[in-house]
Design a protein around this nucleic acid. Structure first.
Lengths: 176, 176
DNA sequence: TATTGTTATACTCTATAACTATA
DNA sequence: TATAGTTATAGAGTATAACAATA
């Protein structure tokens, strides 16, 4: 399959190896392309989704870097935070609240449980479900994670500005 | 491995199957947990990353849904838009501009080329690289994608408000 | 030596489906 | 029959490393 595609590509190339004048970019700069700069985004500039995606990449990378010493990723942090604030929650409840697939939460909890941060305790009222709790060391660890997460949040404020960060939180409050 | 974890889980369960009064949530609501509502997010509320992640999930899902008829995903749209605005760009240049791994761009272009939307033409000046162009049908298709993407963008404006959307674009302009 | 495009691998994440044990 | 947790699989997406052709 890949071989076929490659063959087609080469074939298409050999009949089209004409050097044409480079067309102007649609953003009106008219600079050269492969010069590594001034590459226009055109319609992408007006799309909230594109900006949000790039911002999320930056913010998650900073979170991961800032909490690298404790080896905690954003989703793990969110799971521990919700369990810490609502002990006894079932896996379904946590999954629904955070918008995580319940199948994925299984593995997340497996790793948190293996690190003795979270406990699965059989529910007394429904033997199908588990009541989730932070362990003693999980509570202590979460306190530290929180301090590091606050540091990360300061990075965000430095990056986009204190007021902009607050405005952003206001605008997106409906999605939490 | 999974079997071992399961065994540990059951063991831990059998010695901890005590019914305790449900602790209050940390956000002070004090409601029941598994009642499917009023589950506190605690520290998560103050984290830009969490709000941004939830928003991005929503926005990408709406984009995918709105452009489902033409089977175009956000990344494919961004690649076609940048090539359309800067014809002749190399794969490296596109990858760098959009923050995509060059290895991943290979597969993205394979599928766009298979659909006759994009062409890889051997560069006249550097025989290692390909000059990327939209095909004739790719240009026509992109015009349609753009109309659908504009419709999606209206959904965003409806969801968070016209002014908020514009404020968001301003705040995140540095990340594009 | 370095870079471009490619292939390959691994790990994360999303989306499903199916199984079990309970309800 | 429906639900909670689990297992499995497939597809995106991210992160690397290595290779051939070329610079």
């Amino acid at each position: 399959m890949a071989t076929k595609q490659q063959a087609q590509r080469r074939a298409a190339g050999s009949r089209a190896a004409v050097h044409r004048p480079k067309p102007q970019s649609a953003n009106g700069t008219g600079r050269d392309h492969d010069a590594e700069r001034e590459i226009g985004l055109d319609a992408l500039v007006g799309h909230a989704g594109y900006a949000v995606r790039r911002f999320q990449l930056w913010i998650f990378q900073d979170f991961i870097k800032t909490l690298a010493a404790v080896d905690i990723r954003p989703t793990q942090y969110s799971v521990m935070t919700v369990i810490g604030a609502n002990p006894g929650l079932s896996q379904m409840a946590v999954a629904k609240r955070l918008g995580i697939e319940r199948a994925r939460l299984v593995h997340l909890l497996d790793s948190l449980e293996a690190r003795d941060l979270v406990n699965r305790i059989p529910s007394a009222t429904d033997r199908r479900s588990h009541a989730l709790h932070l362990t003693t060391s999980g509570k202590a660890a979460l306190a530290q994670f929180r301090r590091l997460a606050a540091e990360h949040e300061r990075h965000v404020a430095e990056k986009i500005g204190k007021e902009n960060r607050e405005r952003l939180l206001q605008i997106l409050a409906a999605f939490t």
